[in-house]
């Protein structure tokens, strides 16, 4: 493995870690209205936040297992789709995370400047 390849791999790892930290915030913020996985990916993509489907779908399940989301199977156009929606706990967590995010941005702006 060349040095350039090592660098690219390292960068990709850290970039993923950085995104992983904020993806929960982004996802929770979009689920006031119920969404199914693919529509959520499109919605986030339209807002410039690209998420890999292999990352998003398992994440939705984990958030549901941890009690932040609720889900329902709905038949749309004779096709079953699983819709996710934020619940009360999720909203409380989202509010805290937003505050944390704002504070972090301010701190990091100071750190990075």
């Amino acid at each position: 493995m060349t040095n350039d390849e090592k660098f690219a791999e390292l960068l990709e790892t850290y970039r993923n870690e950085l995104r992983r930290g904020v993806i929960i915030l982004a996802v929770l913020s979009q689920l006031d209205d119920a969404q199914y996985g693919y529509s959520l990916i499109k919605q986030l993509g339209d807002k410039g936040f690209e998420v890999d489907q292999g990352t998003l779908y398992p994440l939705l399940r984990r958030l549901e297992e941890r009690g932040l989301l609720e889900s329902d199977w709905v038949i749309d156009d004779s096709r079953p789709r699983k819709y996710y929606r934020i619940n009360q706990t999720g909203e409380a967590v989202l509010a805290e995370l937003k505050t944390e995010w704002d504070a972090m941005v301010k701190v990091l702006e100071g750190v990075l400047s």
Partner: peptide
């Protein structure tokens, strides 16, 4: 599995 099929169909 059911969800995977649904997502594949959407895609």
């Amino acid at each position: 599995q059911l969800e995977i099929v649904s997502l594949l169909e959407d895609a």
